[in-house]
Simulated scan of single mutants.
Amino acid sequence: MNAIILRPVREDADTVTLNRSDFEALMEALEDAQDLAESREALARLQRGEEEAFPIELIEHILDGMSPVRAYRQYRGLTQQALAQAAGVSPSYLSEIEAGRKPGSVDAMVRIATVLRVAVDDLLPPRPSE
Rank of each mutant, 00 (worst) to 15 (best):
Asn2Glu: 10
Ile4Val: 11
Leu6Asn: 05
Arg7Ala: 01
Pro8His: 08
Val9His: 07
Arg10Val: 05
Arg10Ser: 13
Arg10Met: 07
Asp12Arg: 00
Asp12Pro: 02
Asp14Ala: 07
Thr15Ile: 05
Thr15Met: 13
Thr17Asn: 02
Leu18Pro: 05
Arg20Met: 03
Ala25Gln: 11
Ala25Met: 07
Leu26Asn: 09
Met27Cys: 10
Met27Leu: 12
Met27Glu: 15
Met27Trp: 09
Ala29Thr: 10
Ala29Glu: 12
Glu31Phe: 03
Glu31Lys: 07
Glu31Met: 05
Glu31Trp: 06
Asp32Ile: 08
Ala33Ser: 14
Ala33Tyr: 03
Ala33His: 03
Asp35Arg: 15
Glu38Leu: 01
Ser39His: 04
Arg40Trp: 08
Glu41Leu: 09
Leu43Gly: 00
Ala44Thr: 04
Arg45Asp: 12
Arg48Thr: 00
Glu50Ser: 02
Glu50Thr: 00
Glu51Pro: 00
Glu52Gly: 03
Glu52Ala: 10
Glu52Asp: 06
Glu52Met: 08
Ala53Glu: 15
Ala53Pro: 06
Phe54Trp: 12
Pro55Cys: 07
Pro55Tyr: 08
Pro55Trp: 12
Ile56Cys: 08
Glu57Thr: 08
Glu57Met: 10
Leu58Ile: 09
Leu58Gly: 09
Glu60Ser: 09
Ile62Leu: 10
Asp64Trp: 06
Asp64Lys: 13
Met66Val: 11
Ser67Met: 05
Ser67Thr: 03
Ser67Asn: 08
Pro68Ile: 04
Val69Tyr: 14
Arg70Cys: 08
Ala71His: 09
Ala71Cys: 05
Tyr72Ala: 03
Tyr72Trp: 10
Arg73Gly: 01
Gln74Tyr: 07
Gln74His: 14
Arg76Met: 15
Arg76Lys: 15
Leu78Ala: 06
Ala84Leu: 00
Ser90Asn: 06
Ser90Gly: 11
Ser90Asp: 11
Pro91Thr: 03
Pro91Phe: 03
Pro91Asp: 02
Pro91Ala: 02
Leu94Met: 00
Ser95Asn: 05
Ser95Glu: 04
Ala99Thr: 02
Lys102Gln: 12
Lys102Phe: 05
Lys102Val: 08
Pro103Gln: 14
Gly104Val: 01
Ala108Leu: 09
Ala108Asn: 12
Met109Arg: 12
Val110Gln: 14
Arg111Thr: 01
Ile112Lys: 01
Val115Phe: 12
Leu116Lys: 01
Leu116Ile: 14
Val118Leu: 01
Asp122Lys: 05
Leu123Pro: 09
Leu124Cys: 11
Leu124Phe: 15
Pro126His: 01
Pro126Ala: 10
Pro128Ala: 05
Glu130Cys: 06
Glu130Leu: 02
